[in-house]
Write a protein that binds this DNA or RNA. Structure first.
Lengths: 340, 340
DNA sequence: AAAATTTGTGGGAGCGCTCTCAATAATCAG
DNA sequence: CTGATTATTGAGAGCGCTCCCACAAATTTT
């Protein structure tokens, strides 16, 4: 069954290997009669071309790799990556590409994964999730010659194609919303500023305050890692500065921050308001419901795959940059309904 | 760089292609002198073997596929699968296997994925997450000749290797814990009973009650899908029966159930106690903290990969069944500390 | 009606590797 | 020191496919 070859099909259909190949690959210049006959044989035998042979002969594997660098540690604590992966897998399948998954956990993983991804010829291209500044995996992958698209903007984007969400604009919307609601001491829990996401969302925060004539008070800015604990601890550090509203750079951090606020007996949103970023399912499944900035993660995956395939099939120049928009989702934690 | 071949290395090292192949594959019977020389050339050129060619010649791809069927819809709402995937990816890498990811979303996905996984020769084996009874993907994959390991017990396990967590025992522990704490009206929110997980956890619930001389009251049993909403709605249906404790078949459902209880102004654990299943990170990051049954998801992934590789390398007979244990994690929602 | 073009089909040379087998070199026993 | 054994190396035949080229058949042009 699995060991049928083109030759076998050719023999059964009474044609040559070449003709069967043409039929399988939908090439023109095959008469309808022959095509039909070959198709019937293929159908009845359950033949499926051997991918390794095809890859070797055509120098195209129809496989792309998704590499998640070591500095992206939150593969399963934050739904972002699973969601993204799902979008990527979906689109790959639609384009008949197979997806290889590489989660880099350790230095050893890195040493094994890198050559396999970039020099084994197994992958036509690679998608890399952006991580921290100076992450080895990213740098080394970028230096290789394999077509590559980054998911998230790298610090040094020269010559690199990437897709990104407009984090500055998203953060701006979140903070501006809080300003419009009349909050006076708006703090922020930034993500790791070793990542462009962290940097950009902080910049959006700053920009909103500045454009509305506010002064940025550094005692209201705390950095955290992108996890629940990160938000929790950052909030604890922020509490003495008595903020009346917080923009957290991710929903997961917002959840942690809210926990810290609740433990300090603050009511939400009466004593302190929150806006997150991401719109993870949990945001709508907790009490009180989280006001947040929605980013189109699934479409992000789609777009990444499209961009990469375009790169693979139409050459690496010029580099492509895709920027996606965000949306403010107003729920309970910002206190909008109360202040109306 | 990527287009170096064995032949090139052989020429540079002044030996034959065969010898270089032996060195690359760590075969014995190569003199130290020659091996060293070849290794140096490989090192200095950055040569990496072409995987497609190797696969074609050796009939082994060193790739395994992970297939998540359509009936497992919760790829990103529940951290279970991401966590499992991480364990699988880790172990694959340690064994120098590459992981292909297939998330089946639609019927069309299924038609494309199945032949590619089972008949293209690209994969040496496949891991399949268990889903609902009668899921086409599972049935069809099982019928193919490719080495296969199910993650989670299938309904019809004859001739199928699988690994599973002891769900009956886990549920038993959870419910027995509630019984020991003196709760009288212990209800359960079962998962979908079209899955063995759902069935087994319900059985553990029944077994615990029966063994402790209790009667199973069907008005205290509600089925839900394995999501937050599933738990929420099931809890709403359960409320009129006035349970004083609930065993939810997953943490995510427990979270939803707690939300429903809180909306009904019940205090936890004073008015109603909860025990979940899974021990997802959130269980420890919410207030009150969730008492739950921990299953070793990461090790689950490890074990699945080990079992599959064993199958690939040592033949398909006999079928392997691996059962993993669980652990009761006592936190706040069961009221244990209060009742001490 | 012959020549030129346009299909449609088959043959053959790889793609880069593995693996068996034969050949040679090195080692050993008697 | 010779014949036998063993360690080391090379040659060659594929693995199953693609793709270029040549040829034959059908169609069009002059």
């Amino acid at each position: 069954m699995a060991d049928l070859t083109l030759e076998d099909i050719a023999k059964q259909a009474g044609v040559s290997r070449s003709t069967v190949s043409r039929v399988v690959n939908n090439h023109p210049n095959v008469s309808d009669k022959v095509r039909k006959r070959v198709l019937e044989v293929i159908e009845s035998t359950g033949y499926h071309p051997n991918i390794a042979a095809r890859t070797l002969a055509s120098q195209r594997s129809m496989m792309i790799g998704l590499v998640v660098p070591r500095s992206v540690s939150s593969f399963f604590t934050d739904p972002y990556l699973p969601h993204l992966t799902q979008g990527i897998a979906k689109r790959c399948n639609q384009h008949n590409y197979t997806l290889g998954l590489f989660l880099v956990g350790t230095k050893e993983d890195e040493e094994k994964i890198l050559p396999r991804v970039s020099r084994s010829g197994l992958f036509d291209g690679v998608l890399v999730q952006a991580g921290h500044r100076g992450d080895q995996v990213i740098d080394r992958l970028v230096q290789s010659t394999i077509p590559l698209v980054m998911v998230g903007r790298p610090f040094n984007p020269e010559g690199i194609s990437y897709i990104d969400v407009d984090n500055i604009e998203g953060a701006f919307k979140a903070v501006d919303h809080l300003i419009q609601l009349g909050y006076q001491r708006i703090g922020t829990i930034t993500g790791i500023t070793k990542s462009t996401v962290g940097v950009d969302r902080l910049e959006g925060y700053r920009k909103a305050l500045t454009e509305r004539g506010r002064v940025v008070d550094d005692t209201l800015v705390e950095e955290g890692v992108f996890t629940e604990e990160g938000g929790y601890h950052a909030m604890q550090r922020l509490l003495p500065a008595k903020p009346d509203a917080i923009f957290a750079a991710s929903d997961i951090m917002a959840v942690g921050a809210i926990r810290a606020a609740q433990e300090a007996d603050l009511r939400i949103p009466d004593d302190i308001a929150f806006v997150g970023f991401d719109d993870i399912p949990l945001a709508n499944h907790r009490y009180p419901k989280l006001t947040t900035i929605r980013q189109p993660v699934y479409q992000f995956g789609f777009s990444a795959v499209e961009t990469l395939i375009d790169l693979i099939e139409n050459g690496k120049e010029p580099t492509r940059h895709v920027m996606m928009g965000t949306e403010l989702i107003i729920r309970d934690t910002c206190g909008a309904s109360r202040r109306k």
